[in-house]
Amino acid sequence: MIKRSRGSFTILFFLTLIVFLSVVSLFLTDDLTEERIAFARQAAIKRMLTALFPEMEIYDYDDQLRVYKIFATGKWIGQVFMVRASGYGGPIDIMVGLEPDYSLRGIRILSHRETPGLGDRITEAAFLDRFVGLTVQQIALTRDGGKIEGITAATISVRAVVDKVREAIIAKIDKEK
């Protein structure tokens, strides 16, 4: 039972001590996990690249253009780049896979903070498959004249993803063509 009541110096000291211990343990955990988290993220990226380009043999990250160039049988078969949309719960990191002719190979969600059960359905195959093979003009919700059907009760998340993917591809085409 906590019953002792103490002077303000002890209280201040105790609070400082607790916060200090908390900072130290967080620092140690971060130090311990930093490398592994980066490694796990790299593995997740590789898994998603393979999901977008199953025939991929090697990939190469281009620092300048900030894209993953995908190669198979010695030929360049497409590229994958990352964009960040702002969803309902926070940033959504999206990987966008493009064919050499800038049509969409597909997208994958790398990380997000959308509501479980509603917004997080943007990670489901049923939704991601709707992007496959679209041209840039078709990447919009059906109600906006595009070809992508939304998800009930997840409009904000879906719109964030769809609009960001379209804008990013348009920006990319403008820059490179």
Binding site: I2, K3, R4, S5, R6, T10, I11, F14, L15, I18, V19, S22, S25, L26, T29, D30, T33, R36, I37, A40
Partner: peptide, 25 residues
Amino acid sequence: PKQVRIPVFIVIIATLVTIVDLLLQ
């Protein structure tokens, strides 16, 4: 100290949650 028990508990819980998050990742 009983006057600051709630902030202490909150710091402990928040620290624990962050540690769990990092370890899982």
